[in-house]
């Protein structure tokens, strides 16, 4: 160590090198454990890597539930429920109807009229006799579903909004308001027989 005695002369020639020892195994174990924990953490808090999920929420579902709905959506959802209860048995959840049971409401010219009048009257008072739907003739009878179930104006507006505006069926007619239903109330209440297609065609499309 003679050279160290003199401060200003430094024996500096050798530069750091590393010894080629094997790396300790535990570091890989720790790394693996932390990676596992990391996967769990991201799974729990990462919101599925969706850009619309912000903390403290954890999934798109949770966020969607808390989204304020557009005013029309409530009516639509209510209509969906009523349809499932009162209409889907014959017209099918798909809206396509079924041979010998009921004609389709999806894409039907009776449904997609500018005004909801004709479909409304059918839904409330029922229908009998020959009717042409999408070029096919049907001759069956539909019960007075609305009357029998005692559907309110709100219910009727909802179910008609649903069948008219159901994009999944390819329908895109305007929503139906309670006022529009109210306008037909007197006709609906005074009618004791199911309608025929012939009678209905006399009612203007726009009503």
């Amino acid at each position: 160590m003679k050279s160290d005695a003199k401060k200003s002369v430094r024996n500096d020639e050798s530069e750091p090198k590393a010894s080629q020892t094997a790396a300790p195994v535990f570091i890989f174990v720790v790394l693996a454990l932390l990676l596992y924990w990391g996967a769990l953490h991201i799974d729990q808090y990462g919101g599925g890597f969706r850009k619309e999920v912000y903390a403290p929420f954890k999934s798109v579902k949770e966020v969607a539930k808390l989204h304020p709905k557009k005013s029309g959506d409530d009516v639509f959802e209510r209509g969906e429920k009523i349809y499932a209860l009162a209409c889907a048995g014959c017209h099918q959840p798909s809206g396509l109807g079924s041979p010998g049971v009921a004609p389709p409401v999806a894409g039907s010219e009776w449904v997609l009229t500018p005004g909801p009048g004709r479909a409304l009257l059918i839904a409330y008072n029922g229908l009998t006799g020959p009717i042409t739907v999408k070029g096919t003739e049907w001759n069956l009878a539909m019960l007075a579903m609305g009357q029998q179930l005692g559907l309110s104006d709100e219910d009727l507006a909802a179910v008609l909004t649903y069948i008219r505006g159901n994009a999944a069926w390819g329908n895109n007619a305007s929503a139906v308001t309670v006022e529009q239903v109210k306008a037909h109330r007197p006709t609906m209440d005074s009618r004791t027989q199911p309608w025929t297609a012939e009678e209905l065609l006399k009612i203007p499309e726009t009503e």
Binding site: I27, V30, L31, L34, L35, W37, G38, H41, I42, Q44, Y45, G46, G47, G48, F49, R50, K51, E52, V53, Y54, A55, F57, K58
Partner: peptide, 19 residues
């Protein structure tokens, strides 16, 4: 105030830095 995946990935990275 960023999508939740960003802070949660950050958390994991910060802990992994311990290695």
């Amino acid at each position: 105030r960023l999508p939740a995946w960003m802070p949660s990935v950050s958390t994991v990275a910060s802990v992994l830095l311990l290695v």
